[in-house]
């Protein structure tokens, strides 16, 4: 019987090691797998490259990893949330390298990575410093910035419901980067509020088909809604 559920957060991040590239879903707090990030922190791995829309907030999530000197590089669109001093100071110290990609480009590069495409041609950032150092390609009379696809050793995803085959349903705007990153991780780990038996989730409601998912872990959360 296929069963992708794992019994603990520790088991969920087994094999996530030093120097790996890790995608982290979420937009602000919405859809962010905070408990999986805590498990990565406890695991103690270093020199991580983090791909995420934001770079944590306060002393939580990705910011906690940065504050504990576990991060070498961050690829994101918006690192400068109001309370995020961690990434700002680490970049200023030269400890963390920051690569900025516009949000839509970031999303599409992750999708391209998961979809086996060689890159993305986008008008976004053309002739601005956002495209500095990137090739420009002309096709049918229009110019595009060429952006490389993104893949990861681990994708840490937050969902709402999953079954034992790894079919995932997201809650409201929790989706954001999560379904895209689920496709682009060599090992995709999903933390959910509820685990279901196979057949309990209506096939028409599945956002992320189980083929993209390697591990499912249920996290009991304090209800904040």
């Amino acid at each position: 019987m296929i069963d992708k559920t794992v019994p603990s957060l520790e088991a969920a991040v087994q094999g996530l090691d030093d120097g790996m590239v890790v995608m982290v879903g979420g937009f602000g707090d919405s859809g962010t797998p905070h408990e999986l990030l805590n498990a990565v922190l406890e695991r103690g791995c270093r020199d991580l490259t983090i791909i995420s829309n934001n770079a944590g907030d306060g002393d939580r999530g990705i910011a906690a990893l940065i504050l504990h000197h576990r991060v070498r590089k961050v690829i994101c669109s918006f690192p400068t949330t109001a309370h995020n001093h961690a990434v700002r100071e680490a970049v200023e110290r030269g400890e963390v390298e920051l690569e900025l990609r516009p949000q839509g480009t970031l999303a599409e590069c992750i999708r391209a990575g998961g979809a086996g495409l060689g890159g993305v041609l986008t008008p976004t950032g053309l002739d601005t410093e956002l495209a500095e150092g990137k090739p420009v390609y002309e096709l049918d009379g229009r110019r595009y910035v060429v952006e490389r696809p993104l893949r990861a050793d681990f994708a840490l995803v937050r969902g709402w419901r999953a079954d034992r085959w790894g079919n995932v349903v997201y809650r409201y705007a929790q989706q954001n980067f999560n379904p895209l990153m689920a496709m682009a991780g060599r090992c995709t780990v999903v933390q959910v509020d509820h685990v279901h038996e196979v057949g309990e989730i209506d096939p028409m409601h599945v956002h992320t088909p189980g083929i993209f998912v390697d591990r499912v872990v249920r996290v009991e959360r304090e209800v904040r809604r």
Binding site: C76, S77, F78, P79, T80, T81, V87, R88, V91, E92, L98, L100, P102, Q103, G104, T105, T122, P123, T124, G125, L126, T128, L130
Partner: peptide, 15 residues
Amino acid sequence: QRIAGVGGAADISVG
């Protein structure tokens, strides 16, 4: 400014 976030502004304004 050394560290700034662009978010979705660049995609929104070209599209």
